[in-house]
Amino acid sequence: MKKAILCIDDERIVLESLKGQLRKNFGSEYQYEFAESADEGFEIIEELVAHGTQILIIVSDWLMPDVKGDEFLIAVHKRFPQIVKVLLSGQAAEKAIKNAQENANLHRFIYKPWEEEELVETIRSGLAINYTSLYE
Rank of each mutant, 00 (worst) to 15 (best):
A75R: 15
K19D: 08
F42Q: 05
P81F: 02
L87I: 06
V49Q: 11
K68V: 03
L63N: 12
E116Y: 03
N25H: 14
I74E: 14
H51Q: 11
Q31N: 01
V67Q: 09
I55D: 03
F26G: 13
F34E: 02
Q21L: 14
K112I: 07
I110Y: 13
I97M: 04
T122V: 10
V120W: 10
E47V: 03
I58M: 02
P65C: 06
P113D: 13
Q21I: 13
P65W: 04
G90M: 10
I58S: 07
D66M: 08
E40Q: 12
H51S: 04
G52D: 00
G90W: 15
W114C: 05
E36D: 04
F72P: 04
L56W: 00
K24R: 15
L48Y: 01
V49C: 00
A75E: 14
Y32F: 11
D61V: 06
I110P: 00
N103D: 06
P65Y: 06
P65A: 12
P81G: 04
R79D: 05
E102D: 12
L63Q: 15
A35G: 00
E121I: 12
V49G: 01
Y30Q: 01
W62Y: 11
K98F: 08
Q91I: 08
K19N: 11
E29H: 06
N103P: 02
I110E: 11
H77K: 09
L73D: 05
E118K: 13
L106H: 09
N103K: 13
P65I: 03
E43F: 00
E117A: 15
D39A: 03
F80H: 15
E29M: 04
F26V: 07
Q82K: 12
Y30F: 10
I44R: 07
W62H: 14
A75D: 13
W62T: 00
E102A: 10
G52H: 01
S89A: 12
E40G: 01
I57F: 04
E94A: 09
I97A: 05
V49D: 13
E118C: 06
A38H: 05
G27Q: 11
E29P: 01
H51I: 00
A93H: 08
E36K: 10
E33F: 13
N103W: 06
Q21A: 03
L87C: 04
Y111Q: 15
K68P: 01
Q91P: 00
S60D: 07
K98N: 15
P65S: 13
N103G: 08
H107K: 09
W62M: 09
G90P: 07
G27D: 10
E29W: 02
P65R: 10
L48M: 12
M64T: 06
L48K: 10
W114A: 07
G69K: 05
R23K: 14
K24H: 11
L48N: 03
I44F: 02
F26H: 08
E118Q: 15
K68H: 11
K85P: 01
F109Q: 09
H77V: 01
S60H: 06
R108S: 11
L119M: 15
Y111R: 13
E117R: 14
E71I: 14
D66G: 02
G20Y: 12
K24A: 14
E115I: 10
I97S: 02
E43H: 06
H51E: 15
A93S: 08
V84E: 13
A104V: 04
E71Q: 14
D61W: 00
Q54K: 10
G41C: 07
I57A: 06
I57G: 00
L119A: 08
D70I: 07
K95N: 03
V120H: 11
K112N: 11
A104P: 06
